[in-house]
């Protein structure tokens, strides 16, 4: 087992056992997802189904949009909640300094903390998204002869969006680990509302759609841009910078 996997496992376990994290994550996620589904079903799907002629592409797009937003909200909230506290706690308690005094390298620590902060959120988001896709598909798509999933919907919701969040987690920690933990967290806190409102606006204007490759291109471009920022941020990451940022 590599140092990175040992570190990641311990960090995930530490996070998952935190009652405050679990409670905040579950309550806030349920709240926002419930609002999403009330709005989505009442304002999008029900009016589409009540039209005299069913627009199958629009209905498939609306369902895919709900599934996409489910993953977006749950993974995003997880990153918001878990990117700050464990890092602040780790710096204050000395566990980060202690880890760096072992054979762990600065980048091992950054990698493990990044994965640990987003992995539970991605798993929960993808899981909830899959459940939503099946339930909404069975309720609204299958009875109208529309396939439950399309390749672009699957790629956008379950591969590329988690990829964007993964990159974002790396960026948040590339800033927060050697610097101030709160500075990294700001990226996560700004991203979710900005990205969600941008995608909803573009979707409403039919510029992008979850069932089309254009959203895939947007997400790939975003991933590449974040990756470039990560490369720049990680270049100056040293143990000394991390240790000196752990002011108690």
């Amino acid at each position: 087992m590599t140092v990175r996997s040992v570190l990641t496992k311990a960090a995930v376990r530490d996070l998952a056992r935190s009652r405050s994290y679990r409670a905040a994550f579950v309550v806030i996620s349920l709240f926002f997802v419930a609002i999403l589904y009330v709005i989505g079903v009442r304002l999008l799907i029900t009016p589409l189904l009540s039209r005299p002629t069913l627009d199958r592409e629009l209905l498939a797009g609306a369902v895919a949009g709900l599934v996409y937003c489910t993953v977006l909200i749950i993974a995003g909230l997880s990153l918001n909640i878990s990117s700050t506290q464990p890092l602040i706690r780790g710096k204050a308690s000395g566990s980060i300094e202690s880890l760096l005094a072992t054979p762990v390298a600065a980048r091992d620590l950054w990698f493990a903390l990044s994965i640990a902060s987003i992995l539970p959120g991605i798993l929960a988001g993808v899981g909830a998204g899959l459940v939503a896709a099946v339930v909404l598909g069975v309720l609204y798509l299958a009875p109208n002869g529309i396939p439950i999933a399309t390749p672009w919907m699957v790629a956008n919701c379950f591969i590329l969006l988690p990829g964007v969040y993964l990159m974002l987690a790396f960026l948040v920690h590339a800033v927060g680990v050697p610097g101030r933990a709160t500075s990294g967290a700001v990226i996560a806190q700004v991203f979710l509302p900005v990205y969600a409102s941008l995608i909803i606006n573009l979707g409403a204007r039919d510029v992008v759609a979850v069932t089309r490759p254009d959203l895939a291109l947007v997400q790939l471009g975003l991933t590449a841009a974040v990756a470039a920022l990560i490369v720049a941020a990680v270049r100056g990451m040293t143990k000394e910078r991390i240790v000196l940022s752990c002011k108690r």
Binding site: R89, S93, G94, S98, P103
Partner: peptide
């Protein structure tokens, strides 16, 4: 790998 240490802060994982 050949050094053991105990720093001023304990550095333990509270949830483990």
């Amino acid at each position: 790998r050949r050094i053991g240490f105990m720093l001023d802060a304990d550095g333990l994982y509270d949830q483990l």
